[in-house]
Amino acid sequence: GRSPGRALLRAATGRVEDPVRLLGLTFPNRVGLAAGMDKDARAVRAWGPLGLGHVELGTVTALPQPGNPRPRLVRLPRSRGVVNRMGFNNPGVHAVAGRLRRARREGSLAVPVGVSIGKSRATPVEEAVGDYLTSVTVLHGLADYLAVNVSSPNTPGLRGLQDAGPLAELLAAVVRRTRELAAGGPCPPVPVLVKLAPDLTDTALAEALEVALEAGVAGFVATNTTLSREGVHPAEQELADQPGGLSGAPLAPRAREVVARIREATELPLVGVGGVMGPEDARALRAAGADLVQLYTGLVYAGPALVAEAARAAAPPVA
């Protein structure tokens, strides 16, 4: 039968091998863990053995911060969704870098490890660039890629950094810093991805893509959680009507749409995330143009067996 223990064992021992080379890295398969689950890099050694092809840690900020007051997370079981307003709770980039450094020294990381970086709440928006650059510098040589998070709805002013002007300045500075840090060293600059919100208008998305490409980013992550409550079960409308970003099944159609629009604009590596609740959702994001797929809320509802199922579904069909 399908006992949870057996499902866990199957998931934990059977990594789907479907290697893909992207961003100068080899991913053992196309399914990774989205940012938000392992914010502190506490479980960084566990994700490879669970069958995942990569993990995105964080979001981390330059300063340690407790996040928003609790309760700050609510499940919408009928909608197969979650609303969260965590607010980048994390121990700060120095602590996360220390944990990553230890894991790297031990050689216990079996898969690529990206780190999502965001703005500290205490840092004024006009000083955001310096805040992000602190994280870039501290993580030098430790992250396989960086994801610049300008799209969480839970840090005041953060999403304004997706506007063309601020985004151009931020991404140019981040890319420049990665090049400075790599100069004269044995490794190329760490790839910089930018994670965009599902709630951008077509015009705003097109502008964000244009300035990101101009700044020299290596790829995109689409999408973050949504402020929309479309697709929420009628019985849960009232419960869902509270501050925070919605993830899970209701987000899936919009995530696919944004992935498809980004794919029309560029051939750069693209990570699709949002509403991967089952293997067919992973396949649909791949069909929309995603090279890699990430999940988080799907694990809450489907459990760890989803990892291998999604990785098989995301693999290219055998010709």
Rank of each mutant, 00 (worst) to 15 (best):
G118Q: 11
L133R: 01
R2C: 14
A308Y: 04
P124L: 14
L57V: 10
P166L: 13
E238Q: 12
G87M: 06
R177T: 11
G14A: 13
L306R: 03
G248K: 10
V129E: 11
P19R: 03
E207R: 15
G14Y: 06
L23E: 06
L270R: 02
G24N: 00
R99Y: 10
T201G: 13
R261C: 11
I117W: 07
N84F: 05
A314S: 13
Y296A: 13
F220H: 06
G107I: 14
E230Q: 12
N154A: 11
A12G: 14
A290T: 12
A46W: 09
P153G: 02
L170D: 12
A183Q: 11
A206W: 06
L193G: 01
A284I: 08
V190S: 01
L170C: 12
G185M: 04
H233V: 06
L239Q: 11
Y132I: 09
G274N: 08
L161V: 08
A310P: 07
A206S: 13
R70M: 13
E207K: 04
A110T: 09
A197L: 03
T223Q: 08
T123R: 11
R6M: 15
L167K: 08
L170F: 09
T155E: 04
V217S: 05
V174Q: 06
V259Y: 02
R85T: 04
A240I: 07
G98I: 02
S120V: 13
E257L: 15
I262E: 09
L205V: 05
H54A: 14
L246G: 01
A222H: 04
E309S: 15
S108P: 01
R78S: 07
D291R: 04
T201W: 10
G107D: 14
G32Q: 01
L133I: 02
E257H: 14
A147V: 15
P198C: 03
V111K: 01
P250A: 12
V148H: 02
A311N: 10
L196M: 06
A46K: 07
R101S: 09
N154D: 12
D241W: 11
V115I: 10
G24L: 07
V60G: 02
A7D: 15
P191F: 01
E280S: 13
G275Q: 10
L239A: 15
G157C: 10
L8D: 14
L57D: 02
L139S: 01
H94G: 00
V307E: 09
G157V: 11
P253E: 08
G36Q: 07
L295G: 14
A265R: 14
E236Y: 10
R121M: 07
G275Y: 10
G278T: 12
L73E: 09
R70A: 13
H54T: 00
S152C: 15
V96P: 04
A11H: 02
